[in-house]
Simulated scan of single mutants.
Amino acid sequence: MTEERAPYQRIADDLKDEITSGRLRPGWRVPASTELARRYGVTTNTANRALTLLAAQGLLIKKPGSGSYVRDPHPERRRITRGTHVHRRRTSGYSFSATRPDDPDWQPHFPPIYEDAPITERAAEILGLVPGTPVFRRRRMMSLPGEPPFNLSDSWIVPEVVQAAPAVRERGVPGGYLDAIEAAGHGPLSWYELTRARTPTIEEAELLGVDPLFPVMEICKVSVSASIGTPIEVTVMVIPSDRIEIFQELQRDHTAAYEVLSPPGGRADSATEA
């Protein structure tokens, strides 16, 4: 005897079948919760619960005021190599790029934003500031031409550094503002990264075109001042989790130096030691 499905689960399963079979294609709008409620004889809350479940599974994108749309199940997943080398060109400044050598130029989804904004809790935690404090932010959202947004990038700079290096407010090459920070007495900068998975904020979800329940990858690149030894800038990059995989080559420690194959649990020459 099979267990009876909850009404919202039945709706979700039916819609999932339509999506996986191709009857509902990527980019198509699915029936609204009011229409689903009439079709299945349930409340709109029950129907909306089914749509929310599918959005959390990455099958739908819920756009406030517009509806729910079928998400592309096979977006290009970019492999980002997070190595230990930072690149710099005199013409374009420092580079922490996710591009590949054969990529065309990446395109912005809106003009870069340079403004004072309330600092987020995560950035404030890293920089030792109070969340919500007005802090200078450089914001970009980029992708390859014709593709949906790949990443939303916010660079936050502590107020004392902005005051000492006002050139960071200027529009220009993406990595050039770090040169101004170093020239103001904080060079040479050093960096570290923090990576975690989380759900996006409402604003991030709307900008990136994902549901607020769909996980994203967050990569925080932290700039540390050489003169005071503390973080003075952090760039928070947010990427939909189905569009990225991170590659890092593993190196042998001296304790793992290769000499000769040995059987599990013992040395290769153990049988001869008697």
Results as ranks from 00 to 15, higher is better:
40 Y>A: 11
41 G>I: 07
41 G>P: 07
41 G>N: 07
42 V>C: 11
44 T>Q: 12
46 T>L: 05
46 T>E: 03
47 A>L: 01
48 N>Q: 07
48 N>F: 11
49 R>Q: 14
51 L>N: 00
52 T>G: 12
52 T>N: 10
52 T>A: 13
53 L>N: 09
54 L>W: 12
54 L>N: 06
55 A>F: 06
55 A>C: 14
55 A>S: 15
57 Q>S: 12
57 Q>P: 04
58 G>Q: 03
60 L>A: 06
60 L>N: 02
60 L>M: 11
61 I>Q: 03
61 I>M: 01
64 P>C: 02
67 G>M: 07
67 G>V: 05
68 S>Y: 14
69 Y>C: 03
69 Y>G: 04
70 V>Q: 03
72 D>L: 00
73 P>Y: 03
74 H>P: 04
76 E>G: 09
76 E>Y: 13
76 E>Q: 12
77 R>Y: 08
78 R>A: 07
78 R>W: 14
80 I>H: 09
81 T>I: 11
81 T>D: 07
82 R>N: 07
82 R>V: 06
83 G>C: 08
84 T>D: 15
85 H>N: 13
85 H>Y: 14
86 V>C: 12
87 H>A: 13
91 T>L: 08
91 T>A: 12
93 G>V: 10
95 S>R: 09
96 F>G: 05
96 F>C: 09
98 A>I: 11
100 R>M: 10
100 R>I: 00
102 D>G: 04
103 D>F: 08
105 D>H: 12
105 D>A: 14
105 D>I: 14
105 D>L: 14
108 P>S: 14
108 P>V: 12
109 H>F: 15
109 H>Y: 12
110 F>N: 06
112 P>C: 08
112 P>E: 09
112 P>L: 07
112 P>G: 06
114 Y>K: 06
114 Y>S: 02
115 E>F: 04
115 E>N: 12
117 A>M: 10
118 P>S: 05
120 T>E: 15
120 T>V: 09
120 T>H: 13
120 T>A: 12
121 E>G: 11
124 A>T: 06
125 E>A: 14
125 E>G: 11
125 E>H: 13
127 L>M: 11
128 G>K: 08
128 G>D: 09
129 L>D: 03
129 L>Q: 03
130 V>G: 01
130 V>K: 07
131 P>V: 05
132 G>N: 10
133 T>C: 07
133 T>W: 00
134 P>D: 05
135 V>T: 10
135 V>D: 00
136 F>T: 00
136 F>V: 01
137 R>H: 09
137 R>V: 08
140 R>E: 15
140 R>Q: 15
142 M>A: 07
142 M>K: 10
142 M>S: 08
142 M>H: 09
143 S>M: 01
145 P>I: 06
146 G>E: 10
147 E>M: 12
148 P>Q: 02
149 P>D: 02
150 F>A: 01
152 L>E: 01
153 S>F: 03
154 D>E: 10
154 D>C: 03
156 W>D: 01
158 V>G: 05
158 V>Y: 03
161 V>E: 00
161 V>I: 15
161 V>H: 05
162 V>A: 08
163 Q>T: 15
164 A>P: 00
164 A>L: 05
166 P>V: 03
166 P>C: 03
167 A>R: 14
168 V>K: 00
168 V>L: 05
169 R>M: 13
169 R>K: 15
170 E>A: 13
171 R>W: 13
172 G>Y: 02
173 V>L: 13
177 Y>A: 01
177 Y>C: 02
178 L>E: 04
